[in-house]
């Protein structure tokens, strides 16, 4: 794509800013901020990846993955604001999900250990784990209000905190996995996923693109399940005080 063609894509931003001004949505600043930020971020990432793909240095790959995990942890952890040590648990969860997913992909020789494969696929895995963690924590916060009676009833009947919160964890885990599972059901019928679209536009054959998309979808299914279950197991204690009483998340 030529630089002139790339610059021409700003017409889409002009459309959204125009609509925002016309309908008084007040989103112009956010749209412009988002435009500048995404352009800078993506261009910077492009240069970094170009450099890493050239050197193939393992430490650099690890460093890039660490940065991705840190940013994902920061964003997902914000959803659990008020819960002590939530950033630690979200970070551990995302790291473990990435290690298991990437470990399986490499151990089964599904992808080779090169930056060209490891970094983009890790990015998608970590991104998905971030979304699942955010959804899980959001739902837990909602449940902490609506299911308070259920948890306290079980506690008063002598349940352990784990027993008392079991159904609430289940519901939140299920909720956090719905987008991934729905995505699997409708992929290709409703929309062509970004990665596949990118590969096709860049010249790969649709059949080759589909193979990688299948890999990603299946890896997402396992990473979503891993993320929600790991986060549930690691974080459920945070909803209880030292006497095992159910506490509000903001206390």
């Amino acid at each position: 794509m030529s630089l002139i063609a790339l610059a021409s894509t700003l017409v889409f931003i002009a459309v959204s800013v125009g609509i925002s001004i016309w309908q008084k949505l007040g989103l112009e600043r956010d749209i412009l901020y988002g435009t500048i930020r995404s352009a800078i971020q993506l261009l910077a990432v492009g240069f970094v990846l170009q450099y890493i793909f050239g050197t193939q240095h393992v430490l650099l790959i690890v460093l890039i993955l660490a940065v991705m995990i840190a940013v994902a942890t920061w964003h997902a952890g914000k959803r659990g604001k008020g819960l002590k040590r939530i950033y630690l648990y979200v970070g551990l969860t995302i790291t473990m999900t990435e290690v298991v997913t990437m470990g399986l992909l490499l151990a089964l020789s599904i992808i080779p250990f090169t930056a060209r494969y490891v970094i983009p696929i890790s990015g998608m895995t970590i991104g998905n784990a971030m979304v699942v963690s955010s959804l899980f924590l959001n739902q837990m916060k909602r449940e902490a209000v609506t299911s308070r009676g259920e948890v306290e009833t079980l506690l008063s009947l002598g349940a352990s905190p784990r027993q008392a919160i079991h159904r609430m964890l289940n519901r939140s885990a299920r909720f956090s996995m719905i987008p991934t599972i729905d995505g699997m059901k409708t992929v290709g019928l409703v929309q062509l996923p970004g990665m596949m679209t990118g590969m096709i536009v860049a010249g790969a054959s649709p059949l080759e693109a589909v193979r990688y998309q299948i890999l990603i979808m299946f890896a997402f299914a396992s990473s979503a399940a891993l993320t929600s279950i790991l986060l549930a197991l690691m974080s459920y204690r945070l909803w209880f005080g030292k006497l095992g009483q159910f506490t509000r998340s903001d206390t």
Partner: peptide
């Protein structure tokens, strides 16, 4: 705490 709650039930 669990044993306590089994003895004192609210």
């Amino acid at each position: 705490p669990q044993a306590w709650r089994m003895n004192v039930c609210y």
